[in-house]
Design a protein around this nucleic acid. Structure first.
Lengths: 148, 148
DNA sequence: CAAATACCTATTGCTTTAGTAGGTATAATA
DNA sequence: TATTATACCTACTAAAGCAATAGGTATTTG
């Protein structure tokens, strides 16, 4: 499944903000771009979309930066990806509407809208906190194997 | 959710083949293109992919054409779309693997592979027969409302 | 042999994606 | 108040993918 670089950068950046959520400090785009190895100018555009969607709050000027507008466990992958990727949100075009309207409608109902629902409910179940938890889990010594 | 024209044409064409499955006759690309209002030359390319995936059988020469290789209730939307759309199948690229390998892995496991699974199991549940059934259902007079 | 078909390769124009460039506006701080 | 660090904005470029077209060859039927 194809997720654009922009969307992935957004997820990574939001996860990073989430990991710094508790200390309440603003994080700069430059800092994230260096920490993540992402082009700074490109990441700025990503933050522009995240801000427009109300997912982050920004502070201008020196010592400014960004932080999350909500708690990490209330921001979902769906929130982030739909803020950034048009393709995630947009309705599938009609296919054979002119000559085969019934078939067109059937495809829409049976395939495309069910797919939309499946994607949406999958991504809505995943929060930034879930991602961070998995990162922490990877840091643990791999000793859980002994218990199997 | 964005599904390419190619993928949608493939679904429509396969549904049409399915609706003619019982009479066992080969259907030409030209016929489908005219019935559906799809460019013939473009549809040929779609059938090239469907054939490569083993979903249809072709007969060359005069009186030739295509028909389904399996029963309509055993061909899924997943079969058709993955035969045609690269994006449906391909693994999501890594994002911040260099500098943040744990986060990269977490995103892959928690978000992208779960999304792949959700898409796959949704589309695998939908067969060509399901699409045809919905078309038939639309043809019925809208009298079911009286029973509600 | 002629017609109808599948099948193949290349080309074109368009849109999207990824990334760059060069600014302005704003706030903190020295 | 001047400097600096930041967000924020608009335009640009290059590459890739998508949609569609063009012009064939190979094969089968009649």
């Amino acid at each position: 499944m194809r997720i654009s670089a922009k969307g992935r950068y957004g997820l990574a950046a939001m996860s990073y903000l989430a990991s710094n959520y508790k200390n309440g400090m603003a994080i700069t785009v430059l800092h994230i771009s260096e920490t993540m190895g992402i082009s700074k100018i490109y990441l700025e555009q990503v933050f522009s979309l995240l801000k427009r969607a109300g997912l982050v709050i920004s502070i201008k000027g020196s010592q400014g930066g960004y932080f999350l507008n909500r708690e990490p466990n209330s921001i979902t992958a769906y929130d982030v990806l739909t803020a950034i990727e048009i393709a995630m949100v947009e309705k599938t075009d009609s296919t054979v509407e002119e000559k085969q309207p019934l078939l067109d409608k059937a495809m829409q109902e049976i395939v495309f809208s069910q797919l939309d629902d499946a994607v949406k409910s999958c991504l809505e179940e995943i929060t930034l906190e879930d991602i961070l938890n998995n990162v922490e889990k990877q840091k643990e010594p791999d000793n859980l194997m002994y218990f199997i």
